[in-house]
Design a protein around this nucleic acid. Structure first.
Lengths: 151, 151
DNA sequence: GCACTCCCGACCTAGGCAGTCAAGAAAGTC
DNA sequence: GACTTTCTTGACTGCCTAGGTCGGGAGTGC
């Protein structure tokens, strides 16, 4: 139930790419802009490339750029690319687990957990993120003061 | 963004305790009922005990029982007891991270993620889980067919 | 050809996950 | 008080992941 450094880095780098107008951006610039260890970031960008989220060219004038327009890339996609499926239980998808006895309905709870995560992560695109205009569902959730207190 | 075996086990064992009428339940019975490795389960129950969620007595006729009524124990509590805080990013709470540049609004997204997890996990009590009568928010989420397909 | 930049496998360390084992302490029973 | 049952606790395991570093290789532009 936690967000890994990798996922956080990946989204931040992607946001930086989304904001860049035209032309490839060097890994080094991304690393500096978001204060991410360069070598680690390159691995992450490679994974994003393998998942068809970014593209890259090497050599002078090389760098990375988004494979698709920023308003077509969701945060969910990026998280899945680096962390794998969202909200798996014991490394298997919740719909595939069989619960017995008094925990029979736990499956529905995990399904609901996944669904609620999806409503947030699949709704927000990179374009939303850089513009700051988040979808209403999300900004509503973040707007309640209660959401900001630790527990 | 995944649920550990430990958390899953902990909730299942707690559900079993919630269903047990009166009197301590042996660890062995819990393990059998939910098919959980006994020794591992005992570690988990110990953690739950330290967090004041269950109580235990040893000796003959000993066993475990809930420290509070089943309708006052939420799944969120149990998950926190064994996994630590929900939805931390890089092991720090989202409200404590400073984002800069084009990822400035990422913080709100992670806050929203945490809030949405809370609306599910803090709503469901052990009593709900055992009876199968989940709160409306949760059953609504689990009712959409889309929630059951992998992605 | 050379500088530049990504590509990618190897490696590393710390810590967590999932689990086992064995000894010990407490409580109930007779 | 002896005995049994059952929990308690610490130590320890093997494996994997997270987070990160290093260094060479390979494609690109000039």
């Amino acid at each position: 139930m936690r967000v890994s450094a990798k996922a956080d880095y990946a989204v931040r780098a992607a946001a930086e790419l989304a904001a860049a107008e035209e032309g490839p951006v060097k890994g080094e610039r991304l690393a500096e802009a978001q204060d991410i260890p360069l070598q680690f970031l390159e691995h992450i960008l490679l994974e994003l490339k393998h998942h068809g989220i970014v593209r890259a060219r090497r050599g002078a004038k090389g760098g990375y750029w988004l494979a698709r327009p920023a308003d077509e890339v969701t945060i969910a996609e990026i998280v899945r690319a680096v962390e794998g499926p969202i909200a798996h239980v014991q490394s298997t998808p919740p719909e595939a687990i069989e619960y017995r006895g008094n925990s029979k309905h736990l499956q529905e709870v995990w399904i609901a957990v996944r669904a609620s995560l999806r409503t947030v992560l699949e709704q927000v695109t990179l374009a939303d993120l850089v513009s700051g205009e988040l979808p209403e569902v999300v900004s509503d959730l973040a707007a309640t003061p209660d959401a900001w207190v630790a527990r």
